[in-house]
């Protein structure tokens, strides 16, 4: 069995970029969730305060 190092190096690129991509997207989801919570709570407060 011979290893195709060219394919392996492409695989390393896909693995690194892929894992970095997954982390990036989920970090963005984290930030978005925090922001949504911030504004959601603010809206709830405004709605519950008739003044």
């Amino acid at each position: 069995m011979s290893i195709d190092w060219e394919v392996f190096s492409k695989g390393i690129n896909v693995a690194l970029l892929g894992l970095a991509g997954v982390f990036t997207v989920l970090i963005l989801f984290y930030i978005v969730t925090k922001l949504l919570f911030h504004f959601g709570n603010k809206m709830d407060k405004d709605n519950s305060n008739p003044d």
Partner: peptide, 27 residues
């Protein structure tokens, strides 16, 4: 939402296994 990070970390197996499969001769 902090737990989102674990949802990312636990995908490590996908990419690690892909490399093992390449070493075993898959394209």
């Amino acid at each position: 939402p902090f737990m989102l990070f674990f949802g990312a970390a636990a995908q490590f197996g996908i990419f690690a296994t892909m490399l093992v499969a390449i070493l075993l001769g898959f394209d």
